[in-house]
Amino acid sequence: MGERRALAAGAAGVLCLTVLTWMLVSHAWPVWTGETIYLRARPVDPRDLFRGDYVVLGYDIDRLVLADPAFPAREVVPEDEAVDGPGPPPLPPQPPPPVVRPIGDWWRPAEEESGDMQYLRWRRLRDQRLYLQLERQPSDDPAVPFLLRPVSVADAPQPGFVNLQGRCRTFGPDGGGRQGALHLHLDFGIDALFVPERTGLPIEEAIRAGKPVYAVVAVAASGKARVTDLLVDGKAFLASR
């Protein structure tokens, strides 16, 4: 009995260590085998830039508009921002979401579908794995060798591009209605960067000052990405510590 339980305890330990090893390897795989890219980062929420000791990052490419003539953009009237008294200086204005071409019919509603069914179909795209195709373009910033421009989005990797795998967060017409341009919010799993306690201030200051901040991201051929560092003011933030 004791011997059998001892074996079982050993097996349980091996199982736990196997899961942890798999977790490490699956993280390391894009870093070992993938290519390094640089993505322009922006804070998600100016009032909540730091949660604990990790930086929440957003990217210029995680909110997209699908180019399709059946869903033209509506004129958007910007809302007045409420002012809650003195606070940190405002963040630089965000660029409009890039327009990308959808590849395939994964998003297209059937012609006979009612508005409700369209809505449900789009709602069910939540969590679906999608791939954003990025095209290299010259960088005007000496800190990074090249930049990437989003060109299309598909439900499978496409040859000839850097494919970034993400999960659909939300999909649907802007403004929450049933008409207008189709907005896609993707989550690439690279929106958290843990930094040592009380060291995130330079990042916040750089972002507020309008300096470019880039996430250093390793992308595997499968599209899986891992953020490895931040370039703040041309310097690798974690590597330089």
Binding site: L24, H27, Y54, I190, A192, F194
Partner: peptide
């Protein structure tokens, strides 16, 4: 073994933190 499973659970979160893993 109970303690081992607890440390294992902590290790999952701490590895995620150490390697900036923010997946599902």
């Amino acid at each position: 073994a109970f303690g081992g499973v607890l440390i294992y659970g902590n290790a999952i979160w701490l590895l995620a933190q150490a390697f900036h893993i923010e997946a599902h």
